[in-house]
Amino acid sequence: MIRSELVASVAQANPHLSHKDVERVVATVFDSIIDALAEGGRVELRGFGAFSTRARDARTGRNPRTGEAVPVEAKRVPYFKAGKELREKLNAEDE
């Protein structure tokens, strides 16, 4: 499923809303999650999962083509952990 298909199915369930509005709803949800993480916070959606960030130390990387050493700065990377309910659902059908 891609973003436009997600918008389409939510729009279908809400005939009283314009397609444009549903697009804005979907954008607001994802943008809010990114904003919260960018501010150093976390996002907890029970039953779905939690988004957080993890710190990565600075390290010396290497240009794979030239083999040259390049410094990689310390950074934060987004991390998602699926909620228990979702994890169980993923494995439920084939049992």
Binding site: T28, V29, A36, G40, G41, R42, V43, E44, L45
Partner: peptide
Amino acid sequence: MAAHTLTRADLSDAVH
């Protein structure tokens, strides 16, 4: 860092 935890309530508030 004001590490507030965003929840469903905050998301629906943003949509509102």
